[in-house]
Amino acid sequence: MNWTRTAGSVLGAGVLWLACGAVAQPAAAEGPGTVHVLLNGAYDNRPGELVDIDVQGVRSHGEVTVTSPVFPHRVRLAPYHVADGRGHHARPAIAMTVGPGTYPLRVHVGGKVVAEDRVEVKEAGKPVFEAGTAGDVLRPGERFPVSYDDLVPGATGDAFTVTSPVFRGPVRLVHDPRGGYWNNPRMFTALVAVPHDAKDGTYKVRLTGPHGEIDEKALEVRAARPGDSDYLGRARGPAFFAPSGSPQVARKSGHKVVAGGTVNVLWRDGSPDPGEDERLTAISPAFERPVPLKRDESKAGDGDDPRYYGPARVREGLDAGRYPVTVVSHHGRVKRTGHLLVEAAAQASGGGPDRTLLIGGVSAGAVAGTALGVVLVLRRNRARTAGQAPAGVSQPE
């Protein structure tokens, strides 16, 4: 008997039996350990806040619901597609009547509890109005957050506005359901900029709603003064690099560009003035127009001082030479000038006939000359051969 063949046959049958058995087994039903629930906002909730519920691992197509004493009724979750199947999601609000404590939360599928978690609730707060950070001094041009949180029983309306003598005009506060306060449906916010020409002083910021004035805060504004770390910042530049290059290789002087070409102008500042992201400009008699310098928000800027750059178009027909490029920042307190080397178009191309055509013409001439020489040599050899007989053959007299 061939034991090797027999053993292989038995092993193959065993593998086939295991495979068939694996295929024949029914899928596991939902239950504890197979369904996972993730609660975003399960801790330190106030009555009225939203809880983000995400359930994954449900294999059946039955209704998925959640129950908890913190919700006024059973919550039905909406299905959505994920890479390995389906998920279920909802964002219910905690009832305004719920007191402080820890409450159970259960996930149901087909009438069966398949997962559990807990929701913690703290005491309801009072309405809070904030304008910036208490004790902070704002610079002209600086942006600061304004918010009003009135997540309290009975609060209604959404028409909230802040005004101040230092603002250009009234500013409307709105709720952003996709922002950082998505879980608080009664959080209204705005980002406000102090005007660049604001005078030093303390200003009142008033909050008004549907029924009149609600609250007010004090806002201190003061421009940087000599001795302040941000008075002159830590400005470096301007420097230059090619459109296809990188800010890391920028040079403050010695960079060359042809007339009619483009060059990037770079500016760095370790402590820029507030609002300079929209105001920095590079000017030069070599440029077609002033160049706005925009802040570099790419990952390449991580770990570096804030940097700004923009493409500048060099005027066509410009004479070759060394041209100044100037950037003014910090409300005119900082002025830096770099120099750009401009080459005339004719100079950049060599200033004479096209070298490619010359080389091509010389090469073509050399080839033609060589061919003519070969023909002449062949003709000469034929003539010479015609006058001689092969070896062993007599020439006729």
Rank of each mutant, 00 (worst) to 15 (best):
101 G>T: 03
101 G>W: 00
102 T>V: 08
102 T>A: 10
102 T>E: 06
103 Y>T: 14
103 Y>R: 05
104 P>L: 09
104 P>N: 09
104 P>K: 10
105 L>D: 14
105 L>H: 02
105 L>V: 10
105 L>R: 02
106 R>F: 02
106 R>C: 01
106 R>M: 04
106 R>K: 13
106 R>T: 03
106 R>Q: 10
107 V>I: 01
107 V>F: 09
107 V>M: 07
107 V>Q: 07
107 V>W: 05
107 V>A: 09
108 H>C: 00
108 H>N: 07
108 H>Q: 07
108 H>P: 02
109 V>I: 13
109 V>T: 12
110 G>I: 06
110 G>N: 09
110 G>E: 05
111 G>F: 11
111 G>A: 10
111 G>Y: 11
111 G>L: 13
112 K>G: 10
112 K>W: 11
112 K>Q: 14
113 V>G: 13
113 V>E: 13
113 V>F: 08
113 V>K: 11
113 V>I: 12
115 A>V: 02
115 A>H: 02
115 A>S: 09
115 A>I: 02
115 A>E: 07
116 E>G: 08
116 E>F: 04
116 E>W: 03
116 E>M: 09
117 D>Q: 08
117 D>Y: 07
117 D>F: 06
118 R>A: 15
118 R>E: 14
118 R>T: 15
118 R>D: 13
119 V>A: 03
119 V>Q: 02
119 V>H: 01
119 V>T: 03
120 E>Q: 06
120 E>T: 05
120 E>K: 02
121 V>M: 07
121 V>S: 08
121 V>N: 06
121 V>E: 13
121 V>L: 04
122 K>A: 08
122 K>Q: 14
122 K>W: 14
122 K>C: 06
122 K>D: 15
123 E>I: 00
123 E>M: 02
123 E>S: 09
123 E>D: 10
124 A>Y: 00
124 A>L: 09
124 A>K: 04
124 A>W: 00
124 A>R: 03
124 A>F: 00
124 A>M: 08
125 G>W: 09
125 G>D: 07
125 G>K: 14
126 K>C: 00
126 K>Q: 03
126 K>M: 01
127 P>H: 00
127 P>F: 01
127 P>E: 05
128 V>I: 05
128 V>C: 09
128 V>F: 08
128 V>T: 10
128 V>M: 08
128 V>P: 04
129 F>R: 09
129 F>T: 11
129 F>S: 03
130 E>K: 13
130 E>N: 13
131 A>L: 10
131 A>C: 12
131 A>I: 05
132 G>W: 15
132 G>T: 13
132 G>C: 14
132 G>S: 12
133 T>N: 12
133 T>C: 04
133 T>W: 12
134 A>Y: 13
134 A>F: 12
134 A>T: 14
134 A>C: 06
134 A>K: 12
134 A>L: 15
134 A>S: 12
135 G>F: 10
135 G>D: 12
135 G>C: 07
136 D>I: 07
136 D>H: 12
136 D>M: 11
137 V>W: 04
137 V>G: 03
138 L>N: 12
138 L>C: 13
138 L>G: 14
139 R>G: 06
139 R>K: 15
139 R>W: 08
140 P>F: 15
140 P>Y: 15
140 P>Q: 15
140 P>I: 15
140 P>V: 12
140 P>R: 15
140 P>T: 11
140 P>H: 15
140 P>N: 15
140 P>K: 15
141 G>P: 04
141 G>C: 10
141 G>H: 10
141 G>D: 04
141 G>E: 05
141 G>W: 05
141 G>Q: 09
